[in-house]
Design a protein around this nucleic acid. Structure first.
Length: 558
RNA sequence: GCCCCCGUAGCUCAGUGGACAGAGCAGCCGCCUUCUAAGCGGCCGGUCGCAGGUUCGAAUCCUGCCGGGGGCGCCA
């Protein structure tokens, strides 16, 4: 696999080198290692400030007790002397102490060569220390089909996994489902009642899918359920639960989301993870008995109150399973666990992390990412989301209305922590105007150009020498195209994906501008055509790879 | 009452320590005999919830307040 390092990290190295050089030569005073500030390299909004700007001099002003402008001058001078300085065509100092840089077209041409050679791997980032992540998401109980409320977690989780993989990490996608609790039993009771033509119990499930399950219940299961001594509702529940789970898996498949591991709560009990983990807590002195129940002293780790692990009847709580689960996950060798939960679970974050800490597990590697609520509204009226009343919009229905690409885009382009409102009538109307098509269109347009060129016997240049030389428009497109690795780095660092949608939009805009200003296919000028064909080829790969990170298709024609 | 999240343009959302605050949609005005007009150009639009503070620099960090949502079970 061949990666292309981000421009930002290369320039960062260049400036570090210049800093070291300026220190050695005495142009800048040495500072203590622990006073060394971190500094940023950014893309200035104002083009007059160059292609890149660094704020190192501003950061050094305090520890060096010198004016930032002086420091910036010294750094700029030192930058001219380091071997990699050929990357920059210009370095200027701007108040209050920014280093503004322009990238040399020649250097960018070399990067384009690398990017083309990387192909589908362009945009993937080499990871010095790759980690193995366990990302657990959706994890809805198999008591009914997935509804739109589950959609955001499914997309956010999958998108996060794709970005982590793009940044060089290994990821296991995991779905945890409760097959041991009261809710499953209620599902069994509901289906049984329907099968018998009786009224569904008050706390049962009422959706139309319950009728479907009753109708589909195989005769042999029903017979087994009715055998002497059999727990009829439990037998029906076992069958129904698996049936619903398989339906959930199929729905997720339609979203382009697949899971590596389906983990059941009962397996944690069967394999002894729950009891062993509670014993581990007890050995560490964090378990006590009171009022007949068994408690975890969560308050010792800053929680509001202690938490029950075994009820006074002896049954384990859901929290007990969480404790067993976190140990079980680490036993599989993951470096980091990410739980993607709905915002309504924030109250359980502390207790699970506290239990991990109490068991001596690396609590800093246990992260809960809370996904904000989505309110679905139709014509101004909120759609109730209750599995119990059976009034909900399913995930499949949402996809029917929106389409996978548009749905993925709409969730990818917003921070997971932001609560959002989706008016379905509006969403349907806007799906035709969705920015996702703008990006796909740029990709398809390039396909069309490449096909046209091939038909005219034009071939892309073998290398990028002089392709950008003297052409600001081409250089602009190249800079934008070569920004992808940076965007992936940011996404993995922030565990967010909306940077990628923003980038995809900006790259599409840059391409459309190039299309307007530069003719690619020109049989009268095969040399120029060859260069531009090579350039838009890399741009197309960047678009395709960015869309792939989002799980969105890159059509050849529209 | 305590805890968490959110408050940026008419709408939906980016920007979370850097240089005059951005995009999409909506609205208005232009551009197809030329590689896909699902495109391009232009205009309109914001006391970044409010008030203090920290900083060379604050939409961004801190404190308080206002508004919206969520959570505080021997449910899951």
């Amino acid at each position: 696999m061949s990666h292309v390092r981000s421009i930002r990290s290369r320039i960062h190295d260049l400036i570090e080198e210049a800093w070291a050089g300026a220190t050695t030569s005495g142009a800048l005073p040495p500072i203590e290692a622990d006073a060394r500030p971190a500094f940023e390299i950014e893309r200035p909004a104002n083009p007059d400030h160059g292609d890149l700007a660094a704020n190192l001099a501003l950061k050094l002003a305090r520890p060096m007790r010198r004016s930032p402008l002086q420091i910036a001058e010294a750094l700029a001078e030192a930058m001219a002397t380091v071997p990699s300085s050929m990357a920059l065509s210009e370095v200027t100092v701007a108040p209050p102490g920014f280093l503004n840089m322009r990238l040399s077209p020649r250097w960018l041409e070399g990067l384009l060569d690398e990017a083309r050679a990387a192909g589908d791997d362009f945009g993937r980032v080499a990871q010095a220390a790759p980690r193995h992540f366990n990302v657990e998401f959706v994890s809805a109980n198999p008591t009914g089909p997935l509804h739109v409320g589950n959609a955001r977690g499914a997309f956010v989780g999958d998108l996060l996994c794709r970005v982590l993989e793009g940044a060089g990490h290994e990821v296991t996608r995991e779905y945890y489902f409760n097959d041991a609790g009261l809710q499953i039993r209620n599902l069994g009771a509901s289906v049984t009642a329907r099968k018998l033509g009786e009224a569904i119990p008050e706390d049962g499930y009422h959706g139309a899918y319950v009728d479907d399950l009753a109708n589909e219940l195989p005769d042999d299961v029903w017979e087994a359920a009715n055998e002497e001594g059999a727990d009829r509702e439990a037998v029906v529940a076992d069958w129904a639960q698996e049936r619903v789970r398989a339906g959930i898996e199929a729905s997720l498949q339609r979203l382009g989301v697949h899971f590596d591991v389906w983990k059941s709560e009962s397996s944690l009990h069967d394999e002894g993870w729950v009891s062993r983990s509670v014993e581990r807590l007890r050995d560490a002195g964090h378990i006590y008995e009171e009022e007949g129940a068994t408690w975890f002293r969560s308050t010792a780790f800053g929680d509001d109150k202690d938490r029950v692990v075994y009820r006074s009847g002896g049954q384990p709580t859901y929290f007990a399973s969480d404790i067993g689960y976190v140990s079980e996950k680490f036993s599989r060798g993951f470096d980091k666990l990410i739980y993607i939960w709905g915002a309504d679970h924030h109250g359980t974050v502390a207790r699970v992390r506290n239990a991990a800490e109490a068991m001596g597990l690396p609590v800093d590697e246990v992260e809960m990412l809370l996904v904000a609520w989505v309110r679905f509204v139709r014509e101004g009226v909120e759609i109730a989301m209750s599995k119990r009343t059976g009034e909900f919009l399913t995930l499949d229905e949402l996809l029917e209305e929106l389409g996978v690409d548009a749905a993925r885009w709409s969730f990818a382009s917003r921070a997971a922590s932001s609560p959002i409102d989706v008016d379905l009538e509006l969403a349907k109307k806007q799906s035709a105007e969705n920015p996702v098509y703008y990006v796909q269109y740029a990709h398809a347009r390039i396909s069309s150009i490449l096909a046209k060129a091939a038909g005219a016997g034009l071939v892309p240049a073998a290398d990028f020498t002089n392709v950008l030389h003297g052409d600001d428009v081409a250089s602009g497109l190249a800079r934008e195209t070569l920004r992808l690795p940076e965007v992936v780095e940011d996404g993995a660092r922030d565990e967010e994906t909306h940077g990628i949608t923003t980038y995809a939009m900006e790259l599409a805009t840059a391409f459309h501008a190039f299309y307007r200003d530069r003719r690619v296919v020109d049989v009268d000028d095969p040399q120029t055509s060859a260069g531009r064909l090579a350039l838009v080829g890399v741009t197309q790969a960047a678009l395709r790879n960015a869309l792939a990170l989002l799980g969105i298709s890159a059509p050849e024609s529209m």
